[in-house]
Design a protein around this nucleic acid. Structure first.
Lengths: 345, 345
DNA sequence: TGTTAGCACTCAAGCCCCTCGAGTGCTAAC
DNA sequence: GTTAGCACTCGAGGGGCTTGAGTGCTAACA
């Protein structure tokens, strides 16, 4: 697709911008008179009308019916996000608010993540989601197996960054607590410094080679652990915010949105898919989930020690306040990265 | 309050029952003609009208306006729940459905709880909640401290029933991994067989007496652990089901319901408050949370090894299908108790 | 005395019709 | 290229009407 921008002269762009800005605020179709008054371009409604007519023909505007104003198409939002919106700075108050609620002496990663999701949702009044830092990209420092009951144990993995995760795994009933302790030490020794995801390929063979008979058991456990650890955890907050927007006043529509958010499958997919793109905006039908095609999703990544370790985002109606959302996300990405970098040493 | 039942003769009770049954199904006011046809009592609408007039005077029925039918008052639901409803048996299909989705070879408590909540919500089409088995009532078998980063460790508690829970705690930076291992063994030895909640009173003093200098550190850690472990975890599923009911078609009302469910505070309170009552029904304003006073909440307890270890429940509109909900909850309480009793040996 | 038929009355919901006003597109003049 | 003017469109909102489900009362009936 060629760059939409080149299709439009400056004036059309400014008019389009004014329309999108207005529609984002009011959620009702924007007419030529409004644009004429609002944008200080000194043009009469009639002139605006001509331009709007062109914009409609070009696919940037849509008319619900003849005598209503125009509403932006997805194509318009795309252009708006790419070129038009002024990437707002947060007000001092807002920055202050984030600082106050995030920088509190919190010492645990999980707590920080939950708090981040909360602040994100509070600031934007949309639904927020934060991907818990993923182990797969980090190096293992320690694996501990704790006997729980006959045939099952809890595996706790600690990474070099101090992120932890645990999972229940099945074990042979014959293993005693002492056996488990030995196996823990063995696995820790073997995996220390490796990524879990690499371990399967690179470490398992050496284990097989070194220890004879029990190798199958140990390797099976490592595979179990790797499988459990690669599941992504997502923290979601503010799902019910969607009910504040008139586009979701229809109960059926709200319901399908909320159900999708509750299962979390799509959100998880989006976050993991975009976990290597610094910022990513999905507008309406750019979402491949049919229940989400009236939404937009904006995601950013966050880092620790200069390396991407997770992502977070905001979901709202297609008519969302992109400029604010982008500003908040950028700011919070930095804040979270700072906090985690310190927290994870 | 004297027993409502005695105020009413059999005929009034049957009429009231018919009205409640009908209203639960249709959500629209019930008229005398409907009752006359529906209840096979062989009475004309006129007679029914007289009785309904009495019932209104007694406070069991309400009239939205003169020319509408009657709707049951909370008092009526209370009577209905206590005396009137026929405690429905599940159909074979339903029992089969529960079996199929619950008895699958699941080996982990958390998984069983999530699955239970899911089935509960699917069967009833209301919002379901399940309290994760609470450690406080169980005896500690093992406490393991795992070093995570300087100054913090993960504490994993395993109980005699095989239920586990973990928490991050702060530790003095001077402690080495070996120290932590020693402390783990010490704490395990001291707490083994005790309830965590009792430990503070009964075990701490003996620790203080036995080990001199480090006692404060160890005791502080135990207190930390106790505090973390006493937080209740609740699994909630199907919050968006509420949108299927016309009483929540108002967005603001739906919103406040969903927000309350999302925070989970009230649900947690209800579940812990009722965790020693085999079955408990809260109707409308019997809920002390203002946002929940158009709802009813039904809870039951579940056991393992003959002892209550948790509770679960269903939240829906005041006009909920109490008889079905009660039947499902009773059945699932038994199923879950069986599964957990086996699972927790 | 309890039950019922009949009847007048009430009131929300639904429908039609009208007005209003925000908005458009076109044309002609500047 | 811009603008004023004008005829036209069409949804939203309001008033008035009809409809029908439901009530309460009264009088007759078993």
């Amino acid at each position: 697709m060629s760059d939409n921008k080149s299709l439009l002269d400056i004036r059309k762009m400014r008019i389009l911008q004014a329309i999108v800005d207005d529609y984002i605020m009011t959620a009702s179709p924007v007419g030529s008179r409004t644009v004429s008054k609002r944008s200080d371009m000194g043009l009469s409604p009639a002139t605006i009308r001509n331009e709007m007519s062109d914009l409609t023909e070009l696919g940037f505007l849509e008319q619900p019916h003849t005598s209503a104003g125009r509403i932006p198409s997805e194509k318009a939002y795309r252009l708006y996000v790419n070129h038009l919106m002024d990437s707002a700075k947060l007000t001092d108050d807002e920055a202050e608010y984030i600082k106050r609620h995030l920088d509190t002496r919190v010492h645990e990663v999980g707590e920080v993540i939950r708090q981040t999701a909360k602040v994100l949702s509070d600031m934007t009044n949309y639904t927020s989601m934060v991907l818990v830092p993923q182990l797969s990209s980090m190096k293992v420092r320690r694996v501990t197996l704790i006997p729980v009951s006959e045939g099952s144990a809890m595996a706790v993995v600690v990474t070099n960054t101090g992120v932890t995760k645990n999972a229940m795994i099945r074990i042979p009933e014959s293993l005693s607590p002492d056996d488990l302790e030995k196996i823990s030490k063995l696995i820790t020794a073997k995996l220390d410094g490796h990524r879990l995801s690499d371990a399967i390929e690179s470490v398992l063979p050496t284990i097989r080679a070194e220890i004879g008979e029990q190798a199958d058991v140990v390797c099976g456990m490592i595979e179990d652990i790797e499988r459990s650890m690669s599941e992504a955890d997502v923290e979601v907050v503010g799902a019910s915010n969607i009910l504040d927007y008139p586009e979701y006043s229809d109960a059926a529509k709200a319901r399908s949105f909320l159900t999708e958010v509750e299962t979390g499958n799509y959100l998880q997919k989006v976050l993991t898919d975009s976990s290597d793109v610094e910022m990513c905006v999905r507008i309406g039908t750019e979402n491949d989930n049919p229940d989400m095609q009236d939404c937009s999703v904006v995601t950013v990544t966050y880092k620790a020690g200069g390396k991407n370790i997770g992502s977070m985002g905001v979901i709202g109606p297609t008519r969302m306040d992109y400029s604010k959302v982008v500003a908040v996300l950028k700011y919070m990405s930095n804040s979270l990265s700072d906090i985690l970098s310190k927290l994870l040493k």
